[in-house]
Design a binder for these strands. Structure first.
Lengths: 347, 347
DNA sequence: CTGTTAGCGCATTCAG
DNA sequence: CTGAATGCGCTAACAG
């Protein structure tokens, strides 16, 4: 086990090397790198020259020990392969980088353990702020970890019962519109697959579903609500289940944009034709919804704007830490396409 | 001249606080946090208790000044909203986290300036390794920056002419298969939209396209090759162009999985029916390709495996820095679906 | 096994 | 305007 003996060849020049090279003191070099104006032009140039020659840059660790801000924003999403989050991230990144921040993205794959671990990692690395989508609002480990965090935090699509800014899509409203639409077409057995009720988005979708039924005076069959997980596979399985009921559903709502693929796959494997045999709505407008055959009626909201607003929420708090928490609700709209029709007559 | 007035509100307890609390020395605390076994159980417990009580954790910046490794892997992708990269990232992350590393993802949005900047940021933050997809293999700023980097680096889908591990998909082969297939169907005017020739994937696709033509003894009309950018919008525009030629194409290949949506949109807006009016192939198999109406014939490769292998490449180098650079070529296959037919007779 | 001490690279006083 | 000195929080070497 060869541990290097003697001084290890320092791979990077230090501030001292620059100082020597430019025949000035380390203090002066520091002033130059931090753009302190109290340095004569002549010396500044000499130092800059030495910096370039040596390829010097300040060691960010040594720097981090003194500076309070790192200009780093951490972003935790449960699933990075969700194109929805990807678009949100883009919106955020644009605002953030314009303000001089760098976005560090961590994907947790929906595992709470990873979420907690990554959260810690980001905090320990001293990010200036955090933007998160957690997979479970009630998990105690997460809640405990969250309580200790002093870094400004923006919750996306979640409600953790902590004092923090948050931004969510108005899923309840969007879903109510969609269900009302299906109801008006004559559907009475509308299935929905969506994520856990332990997330705000899941709850809101169910809420909208119920409200629409109530407004229309139609009772809800609880067996038609499948709130297990936001994955494609889950959507596939539950759609199969929904179609195999003694009294099958005549419409399926994919409540989460990863779900649509699962729903369509299941329907396809059953040989069902959309919208003749069954109508489909997707909560979350994606390219798949737009370009599927037939195109899918979807609940849409502005992802980029969502991301931008989330970033602005954080940026504002970074400047004014004492403002009371803000909560933004992003509106959504129903985009009617070709996947919905009257239910088959013989049902 | 120590701090005269009341101690500045220290946000976080330091190792010294813990030492005092547990009535041990800082060295002992350090040993406990770094799991050095040479600490008696009794003392270890006492220290751990103090750590928990105070909510102490080592300042990662102070730590970083001494430790050589940060257990951080940086990942730079040109576009995070590309579901392809997302899947790759997932594969990488799994291997990486199993080895105790954390993946930090930075999205560059295809802007070279951002790529260079983010690259610097990651390096300065002392990531142990890097996995990158750059947008331009020839950009001098990027090349210059890259040359200086000593951190182990894995190039994905790119060839920068530097000494580094790399992993690419066999796009040439995949594309040749696809074109041969179209040629065998009778197509003689096959359009292709893809990314810049300043990326290996772009070149390989064109290479495969040419090879297939050559093998079949069909000459290539250069106007049918559109190699501008990997974006959806570009695909849309160029597909329109391809269809509006005096002699329009009878088949369009989307060379990059973001392109398919653009191609389909353009075809839709022109009222063209797939595959009756025009055949379509996608290089990159996505949910959209699978579930579009009609389903799209696609060139597929294993994304998760790609990511896993990329991670393994990096991990291996981290352990054995001196191994000669490795280059992995991931095979691809043609998945025939319903988007290809004989060209219309009257052309 | 544990305490002590010397830096790591830098920003930041404080003198000149 | 510039240089020297101090210490940030930690690890690692060295004593005991």
């Amino acid at each position: 086990m060869s541990k290097v003996h003697s001084k290890r060849r320092a791979p990077n020049p230090t501030i001292r090397d620059v100082a020597r090279e430019a025949s000035v003191s380390v203090g002066t070099v520091s002033r130059v790198t931090s753009n302190n104006p109290t340095v004569s032009v002549e010396i500044r140039e000499r130092v800059q020259f030495a910096i370039d020659r040596l390829g010097y840059f300040p060691n960010s660790f040594a720097q981090g020990m003194h500076l309070s801000e790192t200009k780093l924003i951490g972003c935790l999403v449960s699933d990075i392969s969700n194109p929805l989050y990807a678009s949100v991230l883009r919106g955020s990144e644009k605002s953030l980088s314009a303000a001089g921040y760098t976005l560090v993205i961590a994907s947790t794959d929906g595992e709470v353990t990873r979420e907690v671990a990554l959260l810690q990692t980001l905090v320990h690395r001293r990010v200036d702020g955090l933007m998160c989508v957690f997979s479970d609002e009630k998990d105690s480990r997460l809640l405990t970890a969250l309580k200790k965090i002093k870094v400004p935090l923006v919750l996306m699509e979640r409600e953790m019962g902590i004092r923090a800014d948050s931004i969510s899509t108005d899923h309840a409203r969007g879903m109510a519109d969609a269900v009302t639409f299906l109801l008006s077409l004559g559907h009475r057995r509308i299935g929905m697959v969506t994520g856990s009720l332990r997330t705000r988005s899941g709850r809101d979708r169910v809420l909208g579903y119920r409200r629409a039924h109530q407004s229309a005076g139609v009772s809800v069959d609880e067996r038609l609500l499948r709130t297990g997980s936001l994955t494609t596979d889950y959507a596939f399985q539950e759609t199969l289940g929904l179609m195999r009921l003694v009294k099958p559903v005549t419409a399926v709502i994919a409540g989460g944009n990863q779900m649509l693929a699962g729903v369509l796959r299941a329907l396809g494997s059953l040989g069902k034709i959309v919208p003749t045999d069954v109508s489909v709505v997707s909560s979350g407008d994606t390219e798949l919804a737009e370009l599927a055959g037939p195109s899918i009626t979807a609940i849409r909201w502005d992802l980029t704007s969502f991301g931008r607003q989330a970033a602005e929420l954080l940026l504002r708090r970074l400047v004014e830490p004492e403002t009371p928490p803000q909560h933004i609700l992003v509106p959504s709209e129903l985009v009617v396409r070709r996947s919905c029709a009257k239910p088959p007559a013989d049902t």
